[in-house]
Write a protein that binds this DNA or RNA. Structure first.
Length: 271
DNA sequence: AGTGCGGCCTGTCCGC
DNA sequence: TGCGGACAGGCCGCAC
């Protein structure tokens, strides 16, 4: 499941293969993603040059001369660079063929992802316009998070998973960050001190940075279709570990549903 | 305005 | 062994 670190890893992986390449052909095998792939996309992209590959939250932005392709990998999406003549498989829905003889191919079994096109500034696109700050930039700090949290009764876990508050904190990283910060996931966001928000912000940054370093590992088997946490799973402290001993105090980790999402925490270490 | 929830999908796992 | 059903999960869009 692509979290922010995997999207960033994907960006770094595909960028050198795409930049300065021309689109020779666009192939849509299945238009039906979260939103339909635009019908005119193939015509729009024909013979266009790729300028850059950027990321905003979990959105990938491929900039062309006349517009930007907005790609989200949803739950199960992956992008790979392959030779043009390699056989497409069942869930390979979309493909950009390049002048290099390679192609960028999107696989997404659950089809929660999307491929959209805009001619305008992509940051002004409806899906991106009201996103919160990038968690790894300086502007995401405890002053900001504390200020946004005031008077909010929402569980802090749901609060930090809200992309209008901060982007890229998925279900796994939310649980892990709250564990590191010693904060109970169900505590009301508005009833947490500024000092504890400092701990939370630094935990979020730490967890995401560590996972991006792991992304370097998954970069090597970039072509593998796994979709599972795999290598990353072993260093999770609480996620998916209900009943197992807390790495800090040894008492059993508890699982609880918060905001319709499985949440894991240590009731002793997190208050 | 803040909050909660339905819905989109398919692979995996579990019980019978 | 086969089959149905529950479940996971990002996140928009809607309802309250």
């Amino acid at each position: 499941m692509p979290e922010l670190p995997e999207v960033e890893t994907t960006r770094r992986g595909i960028e050198p293969h795409l930049c300065e390449q021309t689109i020779t052909r666009t192939l849509v095998r299945n238009r039906k993603l979260r939103w339909p792939i635009p019908a005119k996309l193939a015509t729009e992209l024909q013979q266009q040059l790729v300028h850059s590959v950027r990321r905003r939250g979990k959105y990938l932005l491929i900039d062309f001369e006349r517009g930007t392709l907005i790609i989200h990998l949803g739950m199960s999406g992956s992008l790979r660079i392959l030779p043009i003549d390699s056989a497409a498989e069942k869930h390979d829905h979309f493909e950009l063929q390049l002048s290099s003889g390679q192609c960028l191919r999107l696989r997404d079994p659950r089809r929660f992802g999307c491929v959209l096109w805009t001619r305008r500034d992509p940051f002004k696109h409806k899906l991106l316009a009201s996103l919160g700050p990038e968690p790894l930039l300086k502007e995401f700090d405890s002053d900001y998070l504390y200020a946004r949290s005031r008077a909010r009764k929402q569980a802090v876990k749901s609060f930090i998973m809200d992309s209008k508050i901060v982007v890229g904190v998925g279900n796994i990283y939310a649980s892990e960050s709250l564990f590191l910060a010693g904060i109970h996931p169900q505590r009301a966001a508005g009833r947490i001190s500024e000092k504890r928000y400092q701990q939370l912000v630094s935990a979020i940054k730490k967890v995401l940075q560590a996972a991006i370093r792991q992304g370097g590992t998954s970069l090597r088997d970039f072509t593998a279709s796994d979709g599972s946490p795999g290598y990353f799973k072993q260093q999770l402290n609480v996620y998916g570990r209900a009943g197992e001993p807390c790495p800090r105090c040894g008492r059993p980790i508890r699982q609880q549903t918060i905001g319709q999402r499985a949440s894991y925490y240590c009731p002793h270490c997190q208050k």
